[in-house]
Design a protein around this nucleic acid. Structure first.
Lengths: 215, 215
DNA sequence: GTGTGTATAAAACGATCGTTTGAATGTCAA
DNA sequence: TTGACATTCAAACGATCGTTTTATACACAC
């Protein structure tokens, strides 16, 4: 089978390294040599373990991105369950908190957003996979949670666009850090992140038009 | 000097082609041969007219992206000037209209968002240029317009984050078309775009918390 | 020990990359 | 017509790309 130790550590190391580099630079901008060099293994290891470069990229999504997305979603549900009420406010706050200040480390969150953004602007085979398996189900979940507690009658399509708007902010404040930091003069420290959660939550809550407003 | 016709048409053709390809695929994913082939000119033309590939990329931003950004901003001001009042509502609607359904063609808008998004996730020398020359001034303009008509007292930083939130939606609904179309089942036809303008406008207006709401 | 299968290693493969070269072409001033 | 200049062209440069090949090292069943 495998060597006693170093089992498939090489394979795991390649996946970790590849994810970081793909997220930072994009698929085309990263060479196999760059990955194997950073992962401190032989050049041929990529082709041995994954067949080719494209397959490695897809495997990064399967074995790294998807689990992390599920971790985010679990964080969302955990936080929501800890609230006393499942109000619209609680749902939105849980959403913002999970994606901006949630269970993941800051680096992980950045990588996650970067990979997602790349697939949205330039979809590969990976997008098909994650859209069906992860994104679409989660969107429907949020949609149903919000619809069931929404004070005003809102069509499904309109509610979907609302959720998109919230996700737009969540993603934007993650992947556009350079621009946000540059224009606000703020670093992404815990203090600023907490402020962002508040910003997204309040803006979204008002945006949803729940409760206090009349049509 | 130059040939009678075909003056520097080659140079212009390269810039047009390069912009489309860079926006679609990103800098690294596009080869010089691909550009010159699509632009129907010789391979060496890129190095002759622009020195090297990187310089061509920067020139795309200088001669194509920046003017288009200014066109967008002018569209924003024109639409705003045509309104009877410079209310918060008018400012937000002008913003959404300019960027989602504004003076640019649909293709141009897509290219614009794609190039911008690439620079935000992976800034190059081009970002320094456009951030100082275009984005920062426009942000300040919107900030001042909104601050002067805002009904409630809001700190500058908070207002800046509000504007970021609006831009997040505007950019998102442009560059994430694939995902939006996939999850909503809608194509980006004029009807849907008009609906998006309404969505962004209404959501943002409520999000800003202007007028009807109490703190 | 022997054979089998797994993992790593160095070296090379052909293809493609960005860039350079040097000659050919055409235009305009003198 | 001649010389100077701007532009285009085919061809080749060295470097790097993803991938393959071949050999070696090791653990385990027999």
């Amino acid at each position: 089978m495998n060597h006693r130790n170093g089992e498939d550590l090489t394979k795991e190391r390649i996946l970790d390294t590849a994810e970081i580099l793909f997220a930072q630079k994009g698929y085309q901008a990263v060479s196999v040599r760059e990955i194997t060099s950073a992962a401190e293994c032989n050049l041929a290891a990529v082709n041995y373990h994954f067949g080719n470069k494209e397959n490695l990229y897809l495997e990064v999504f399967r074995s790294r991105w998807v689990p992390r997305a599920q971790c985010l979603q679990e964080g969302f549900r955990k936080y929501l369950a800890s609230q006393e009420s499942l109000s619209e406010s609680a749902v939105v706050r849980a959403l913002a908190k999970a994606f901006v200040d949630g269970p993941l480390s800051d680096d992980e969150r950045l990588r996650h957003s970067q990979l997602m953004t790349r697939e949205m602007t330039q979809p590969t085979k990976a997008f098909e996979h994650v859209a069906e398996q992860v994104i679409q189900p989660f969107f429907r979940e949020v949609l149903e949670r919000l619809s069931s507690v929404s004070s005003d009658k809102v069509g499904e399509e309109e509610m979907l666009l609302n959720i998109f708007s919230i996700f737009a902010m969540v993603l934007h404040f993650n992947f556009a850090r350079v621009a946000v930091s540059r224009l606000t003069g703020r670093k992404y420290d815990p203090s600023f992140r907490a402020q962002l959660v508040e910003q997204i939550t309040q803006f979204s809550l008002r945006g949803l038009g729940g409760g206090k407003m009349e049509e």
